[in-house]
Design a binder for these strands. Sequence first.
DNA 1: GGAATTATGTCAGTACTATTGACGTAATTT
DNA 2: AAATTACGTCAATAGTACTGACATAATTCC
Lengths: 177, 177
Amino acid sequence: MTDPSPAAGKPIRTAIADEDGIDFAIIELFFFAYRDFTSDPDQILAEYGFGRAHHRVLHFVNRRPGLTVAELLDVLKITKQSLARVLKQLIDTDHIVQVQGPRDRRQRELYPTAKGRALALALARPQSRRIRAALEDSGATERVTIERFLEAMVNPELRAQIDIVPAQTSGKNHGDH
Amino acid sequence: MTDPSPAAGKPIRTAIADEDGIDFAIIELFFFAYRDFTSDPDQILAEYGFGRAHHRVLHFVNRRPGLTVAELLDVLKITKQSLARVLKQLIDTDHIVQVQGPRDRRQRELYPTAKGRALALALARPQSRRIRAALEDSGATERVTIERFLEAMVNPELRAQIDIVPAQTSGKNHGDH
DNA sequence: GGAATTATGTCAGTACTATTGACGTAATTT
DNA sequence: AAATTACGTCAATAGTACTGACATAATTCC
């Protein structure tokens, strides 16, 4: 069980290099960065018995209040069934409310409650703090550089969704490219 | 079921803004970017009946050939039980071989086979392509800026692990800080 | 040498997130 | 009136993770 079976291939003892010009450094960093990035809210969510799926729903309902279930499914790229349980829990715990669509009464517009808004903020706070610290640490004076890079990492056909994000109520906006 | 129950909070109709200076733009971009970043290898993995966990194991075994099971657990920050199934499958399919530790015979050093090396490369290729394209698209001439930012996003105590990555066989290395 | 510790493997049970497929209801569109 | 759309729900399944417990072999400590 310890030694490879006779048929098995021989062990390769050299580390994978930048063969074919593959950027292993950034691939790996992206993994570590995202894992730690999500670990902050995970701890808060656990107190509520929630998971990451709840976070994502809560985030987008706060970002685009009034979006419909179909729109939410499209943004999250998950199935109706996957959303169902999570959304139901958020509604039952009074973090999100459904309002019948004004034009189309089949639709359910999703809005955060004050409670849901507060939780979304609490979840985002440590993430934002981490980002700010990282920008300072790394000496990236240009926040925009990071923003553009991340946006360029997203599939082109999805970038439209991102730009849907409404103009902020604060004065800050960074153009609608 | 459509209208909120009487006890429920009222819907908040304004989008969450940069309240408290929270960087929602980058939070959201990070989510989209990582999702698309992982979607490329996911498709390849599906052909083998593998998932993301297999990818991560394969990646690190290729990056640090000869690491032990304990070291792998430490890097991935998962439990022995979570690793077990995935590692077993990779060994059974001849992507990874175990070699008894030379000094400590309790240890199992993990090495990729030629097959495992090839799969790791195939999985990394589209990811690296996406990164390169994103750097060009976003006009980020400084790859290092992105690298530093991502590294700064990682928990400080974990950065040591990242630096363990051995010097590449190619001439390229970026200091061993 | 014997005891404690370490490295690994395995078993049982559970949780969360996700999937596909099917079906039902109400509302809108054709 | 018929077809389509939006939503909700049921059943079954998969992948990844968890905790806790236990076994074996090898090493280290006293």
